[in-house]
């Protein structure tokens, strides 16, 4: 009964993973005969490739700023919609969720235009209040700020939906009881809402971290033209997946590319396990 499913699973999930693992121990450009490389590709990744650590650091920097802000914004928006905008909730919900379903290419173009040094609306705004233009897409930290803003703008609506579903499972009686005891909205938020949303927090934090390591679309599309350096100015927004993509599909080093992918898998696995342990330990408290 389960054989067809199992066969499909082996063909489309297990086989590609095992095949990729095998390729990671080879030198192969996709055309010539592959040669066995042993652990050379992994040694190169961890000891000789400056971009490996740079991309890891960049991914962490982008996550460190974008994850707390998108979670905070999503939570705040969910609470505001639930408690203060009940009549217009559906409309606002849709508006806030739209960036999440917008095609990444469009997002890349929109942000490219908005943050353009010469004709962008952001620099025009800065000019109106007497500030100098910023070379957003040409310097290290401004480029990171643009990517962080893009990630937040795209994802906070999804966070909001997650928190709204969590909020709907909290009994209104708890809030009523708190109100009778004299608690205001802020007190209820910190004493009831936050603690009872812990499972949602755990879920969104772990998925945000995993997605953070897999970040590709936003920085890639902001710096996608032939005349833009890969990974932006000073490689400041080069993420691990961008490095994997560059090595595999631009340089055609399929062996080294898959070694990078498995290295990323190992790093993600370790960090996710630590994260789970920390979050669960806090949950046990």
């Amino acid at each position: 009964m389960i054989l067809p499913f199992f066969l499909v699973y082996v063909a489309f999930s297990i086989y590609p993973i095992v095949y990729s693992l095998v390729i990671s121990f080879l030198n192969w450009d996709g055309i010539s005969t592959p040669s066995f490389a042993g652990l050379t590709n992994y040694i190169r990744a961890f000891t000789k490739d400056p971009f490996f650590y740079k991309s890891l650091t960049n991914s962490m920097i982008l996550m460190a700023f974008s994850i707390p802000i998108q979670i905070a914004l999503g939570l705040l928006m969910a609470c505001v919609l639930k408690d203060f905008l009940k009549k217009t909730r559906n409309g606002f919900q849709l508006i806030n969720f739209l960036p999440y379903v917008t095609t990444p290419v469009a997002i890349g173009l929109i942000f490219q235009q908005m943050f353009n040094w010469k004709s962008g609306i952001v620099n025009a705004g800065l000019g109106l209040i007497g500030l100098d233009s910023v070379y957003w897409l040409g310097e290290t930290w401004p480029a990171r700020v643009v990517v962080i803003l893009t990630i937040i703008w795209k994802n906070y609506g999804y966070m909001m939906i997650m928190f709204l579903s969590g909020l709907s499972s909290i009994s209104p009686k708890l809030y009523d009881a708190a109100k009778i005891d004299g608690a205001n909205w802020v007190q209820s938020f910190f004493k009831i809402t936050i603690p009872l949303l812990r499972p949602i927090f755990n879920f969104v934090i772990v998925t945000c971290v995993i997605n953070g390591f897999r970040l590709f679309d936003e920085p890639q599309l902001l710096f996608q033209s032939d005349t833009q350096p890969i990974g932006g100015p000073n490689r400041s927004v080069l993420t691990m997946i961008m490095r994997f993509y560059e090595v595999s599909f631009r340089d055609f080093q399929f062996g080294y590319g898959t070694a990078l992918a498995f290295s990323l898998f190992i790093i993600m696995g370790i960090i996710t396990m630590i994260l789970y342990a920390v979050l669960n330990a806090k949950g046990d408290d």
């Binding site: 070379y135 040409g138 310097e139 032939d226 005349t227 833009q228 350096p229 890969i230 100015p233 000073n234 490689r235």
Partner: peptide, 14 residues
């Protein structure tokens, strides 16, 4: 080469 050259142009502009 084109990639590192583009990187240099960004640096000169900045």
């Amino acid at each position: 080469i084109e990639d590192v050259y583009n990187l240099a142009l960004k640096t000169i502009n900045a």
